[in-house]
Amino acid sequence: MKNFFVILGGMGSLATESFVRLINKRTPTNADQDYLDYLVVNHATIPDRSAYILDHSQPNPGPKLVEDVKQFSTLNPNFFVLTCNSAHYFYDDMINATTVPILHMPKLAVAEIKTINPKAKRVGILGTPGTVKTGIYDQFIKDAGYELVKPTQDILDETEALIFEDIKQKGQVNAERYHEVLRRMQEDMHCDTTILGCTELSLAEEQAPDHNYSISDAQSILADQAIALALNQRAEQAD
């Protein structure tokens, strides 16, 4: 197979399924052959990213991520997508291990805010404690000219429960909890737009989109960018 991309997933598996659904649903098709060519790497046994980021005595997922990049680079994909926000903590190590481009989900999510909400000034971030506390998104938000808004510990705790207890452990989305953390970011923290900086939150958005809060859904944006890039590369090869 030529002219394909690789989805580095399994972090977690339900969120990876959500990403693949978006790719297939949003690709313009009239026949089987119109869908995109891609490989899904569901490396579910990679150690928890957030746990290591917060406590380096925990198992380090970085070498496994680098190993995956090296392994699948030998297949000559056109590009990689990394469907885990926290894993972008290791992005520099991963990109240095390959000549294949790796789309950068946090950069894309921040860049899209100007389209989602052109009047946005205060931008909030929701995600795992590892993503929020180590600032994976922070500099991109500031460099774009926005005021960065972090969740309070209470909001972070509720978000963590949604991600780890409801989705990762129970395999279900608690829509009420999801909507509540969005409400608190907008109404209590006065965010103009809130970034969904965890793919489990993107899964929650897929299953519980019935709200009016302004969000930048990182996984959804990554899916759109991957589709656009893949279709453009297909068209170039057809010329």
Rank of each mutant, 00 (worst) to 15 (best):
S18P: 02
S18F: 04
S18V: 04
F19E: 01
F19V: 02
V20T: 08
R21Q: 13
L22K: 11
L22M: 13
L22R: 07
I23G: 04
N24Y: 12
K25Y: 10
K25M: 09
T27K: 08
P28V: 12
T29Q: 11
D32C: 12
D34P: 02
Y35G: 03
L36E: 10
Y38D: 01
L39T: 04
L39F: 12
V40G: 06
N42D: 13
N42W: 05
H43T: 06
H43N: 14
A44F: 14
A44E: 14
A44Q: 15
A44Y: 13
A44N: 14
T45D: 14
T45E: 15
I46L: 12
P47A: 10
D48F: 12
D48Q: 12
R49D: 02
R49L: 09
S50Q: 07
A51V: 02
Y52H: 13
I53K: 00
L54H: 07
D55P: 04
D55K: 11
H56Y: 07
H56C: 08
H56R: 15
S57V: 05
Q58F: 03
P61K: 06
G62F: 13
G62R: 13
P63I: 15
P63Y: 11
K64T: 10
K64D: 13
L65E: 00
L65R: 02
L65G: 07
E67H: 13
E67T: 05
D68K: 00
D68S: 10
V69A: 05
K70R: 12
K70I: 11
Q71H: 08
F72Y: 15
F72N: 01
S73P: 06
S73G: 12
T74G: 00
L75M: 10
N76G: 01
N76V: 06
N76D: 12
N76P: 02
N76C: 08
P77A: 07
F79Q: 05
F79I: 07
F79M: 09
F80Q: 02
F80I: 04
V81R: 00
L82C: 05
T83V: 15
T83H: 04
N85W: 03
S86N: 06
A87N: 01
A87F: 03
H88C: 04
Y89N: 02
D92Y: 07
D93K: 14
D93A: 15
M94A: 10
I95Y: 03
I95D: 02
N96C: 10
A97E: 10
A97V: 09
T98E: 11
T98A: 12
T99I: 11
T99P: 02
V100D: 04
P101R: 09
I102D: 02
I102L: 15
H104A: 03
H104P: 01
K107H: 09
L108C: 08
L108M: 14
A109W: 01
V110D: 06
A111H: 07
A111T: 08
E112S: 11
E112D: 11
I113Y: 01
I113C: 06
I113N: 00
T115Y: 09
I116R: 05
I116V: 14
I116G: 05
I116Y: 05
N117I: 08
K119C: 08
K119P: 03
A120F: 09
A120V: 10
K121N: 12
K121F: 08
R122C: 09
V123Q: 06
